[in-house]
Design a protein around this nucleic acid. Sequence first.
DNA 1: ATTTCACCCCTCTAGACAGCATGTC
DNA 2: CTAGAGGGGTGAAAT
Length: 725
Amino acid sequence: MLESVTIDNYEYVLGSIMVKGLKEKGYRVLTPPQVEALESGFLKGDNIVVCAPTASGKTLIGEMALINAFLNGLKGVYTTPLKALAYEKYIEFSFWERYGARVGISMGDYEVTEEEVERLGRYNIIVTTYERLDSILRRRPYWIKNVGVIVVDELHMLGDESRGHIVEMILTRAKTLGIQVIGLSATVGNPEEIALWLKAKLVKSSWRPVKLYEVITYRLSDGSYAMFLPGNINNASSPIVVSDVTRYWIEKAVKEGFNVLEFKYSRRGVEELAEQYSSVVCEYLTSDDRNRLEELVQLMKVELPDFEYEKLEHLIKCGVSYHHAGLTPEARRIIENAFRERIIKYLAATPTLAMGVNLPARVVIVNVYYYSGGGRKKISVLEYKQLAGRAGRPQYDPYGIVVTAKDVKSMRESEYYIRGFPEPINSTLLSESALRKHVLAVIASKEANTLNDIQLFFSNTFAAMKMGKEILNKKINNILELLEDLSMITKRKVVNNVVYEATKLGLVTTMLYIDPLTTTIIVEGLKRNEKASELYYLSLIGMTPDFSDVNIGRGVRKAYYDLIDSYVLLKQLPDEDLEQVFIDQRIDWMRGVMIGLILTDWVNEVPERRIIEKYGIEAGDLRVIRENGEWLTYSAAVIAKTLNMVTHSKELFKLVERVKHGVKEDALELVKIRYVGRVRARMMINSGIKSIEDVLNKENLVIRLFGDGWGKKIVEEARKMKDII
DNA sequence: ATTTCACCCCTCTAGACAGCATGTC
DNA sequence: CTAGAGGGGTGAAAT
């Protein structure tokens, strides 16, 4: 056993102030990846890529770089893929405020106005989401020259199909501007290549804080399972056969006081797992367990909407739950905490859980099959390692156990995940949808305006290194033509060069952070009518590529075919010809219609429960639809204004507020009052209270409606608003 | 005449980031 | 491609 290395050993590198702070934060010993990183000399300013498993202390390396920059009078930026992670890190780094560092956060929940960007100039440490940082960098804030380091959390996201290109652009700009880069990555197949691209030193480590046993598991033809347990668990190198793996581990877990996490790539799948094993866990609960679970149930009853609570109640009472994005964020947080405290013994989850907050378990069961695009596929080794990394809670568990590939049918397939190497990650920037956004952004921000400069800018990308500049330049040329066709940019010939400039529409598109195609669809849709219904507007934005896909209940679409036909005839919906406006670009017309119907119900005050049942969606889905709807309705409003479509823009701006609060027009004033949402606003209007003025004049009526507590609060809030006016 | 049931066909499959106007009183 | 569960529809058998 190596003697542990302490922070003190590196005081000569870290400096006394940082050492003092880190100790105050509770750090003493350094993990091997941290030692290696320090040895690499990243605090002197070199780029570094750290490839190491979950919980090996990568964040601290980033944190050191941020503090180092701060102590040198520079700014540090830390960027992550999730808002929840950004917030977590923000809280963590706020510790340094006692050392004089000003710590700020910037993500979509906060505005990105000029003032906001200016405001960020005051901070020494800024935590952002990837997209927000991309958006900020496009605005080229004056303070960018003071940024000493950008720390990219979850750097392996670089290979993510839908968002990797954002990371690539951030890093490309960091390279171009000569800003130090610290990349924190899971173990990937080609770390050398990424390090080479970033001109970074590479720290590779497989060190984990908890020993990990990967248990080869597979299904036998009779439906039972073979498992090769590790030697020191049952001293056997031949497999044991159990009829049900999950049951086997749950029984062990409940008796020995640890918990079990199972991953599966399907919402329905995880709900079924929870259902299936709730009776198993229930059998073993102690009276103490039951009491704690009863408390938990009471908490959920208060905190969650009824329809969500009703779905979970019987599971939670048995110490079991599922976890996926159909749940509201509130439900997810409660379940995560209960699992962390081991009140919930068995949790079946989709990969949301592995992406987000740190939630380890002694035993992790991994299913590897998922279904997509009509086929049956297996998750990659990289994804498997990410899920497996959740096994073993540092400081609590002596080891972690991963049941590898519960749903495969041969030993070979299971071993493949254990012995196999994570796949190399590739650039995703060359997809048309990614490139059209970024080429436009580079032109709109004036980071590059001539063909040569644009090509030069993109020659710094990972894509250029991987694919070669010729292919890249060809693609860029195609995109430039497309953007010109879409009226996003204009072209001018100057002597030996071509100069590009963003149009008003292009500028707006970049600022709104939407896809040029989204803008075009909105423009085309609006052009067709002078004035339109809310259903028309809301369907139109639902058809754009920026609106995320929605899980509509089975059979629901079909049930609406006739209704939809009649709407199209009445010109209440954008007609399907809209699709033909875009050669080669399929727009999701049907999705848009469903979104339109859902959001129309929402802004007409149909109760949430009713909407969810009607369209077979879940509480969490409705929330996503509302957020997307708000952002894109706003975007449509700004686009309409840019094109001087006065009626549309007026209507759309009004609609933004209605989507935000889920109310009809007459309730817009009331919902501005804090503590008043769609339901209370309607109650007041029904009682004759129609404005803030009315609230103050009919104080007693408000208190009669909502009781002493809420009633008085609401009146008080209304008074505050009156005072402001 | 109405209900029940076996059977076939069809459908469906994870997640999450981004925006913050303006004219008028 | 290499799945599999559940919903809906259908038609014939059972009541």
